[in-house]
């Protein structure tokens, strides 16, 4: 496993999302300072709206699930699993964490 620094914690916006490039893939990073995991990463591509916009969605909870709502057609995706609550689609999730002042990506090397 290797660890790559993505950005500084100052690049994040609390309780909202930004977008980063990881290995040329667009990844939406969500920073929820009041949760245990604090930072969540999902693919930025909205398979329903067909645009790179997930990082610009609004976050919240539906029941027990932490979710982001797509800014295009408002479907909800789980921040932890990537599953869509309304349709049969999923977003890829990425293993990210906060290390000191940085956001890091834990890449499994095969």
């Amino acid at each position: 496993m290797s660890q790559n620094v993505i950005c500084s914690i100052n690049d994040l916006v609390a309780n909202s999302g930004v977008c980063a490039l990881i290995n040329d893939e667009q990844v939406a990073l969500f920073y929820l300072p009041n949760t245990e995991q604090k930072v969540y990463a999902l693919a930025n591509w909205d398979p329903l709206g067909k645009a790179n916009v997930i990082s610009r969605g609004m976050i919240g909870n539906i029941g027990e699930e932490l979710v982001v709502a797509s800014p295009l057609y408002k479907q909800h995706f789980s921040l932890t699993s990537g599953h869509c609550l309304e349709e049969e689609v999923s977003l890829r999730t990425y293993d990210v964490a906060i290390e000191g002042d940085f956001v890091v990506f834990n890449e499994t090397v095969s």
């Binding site: 993505i6 950005c7 690049d11 994040l12 916006v13 909202s16 930004v18 977008c19 980063a20 490039l21 667009q26 990073l29 790179n52």
Partner: peptide, 13 residues
């Protein structure tokens, strides 16, 4: 701060 396509790269979508 948020008006950046990527926080870690100067590229377009």
């Amino acid at each position: 701060k948020r008006f950046r396509q990527f926080v870690n790269a100067d590229k377009d979508d």
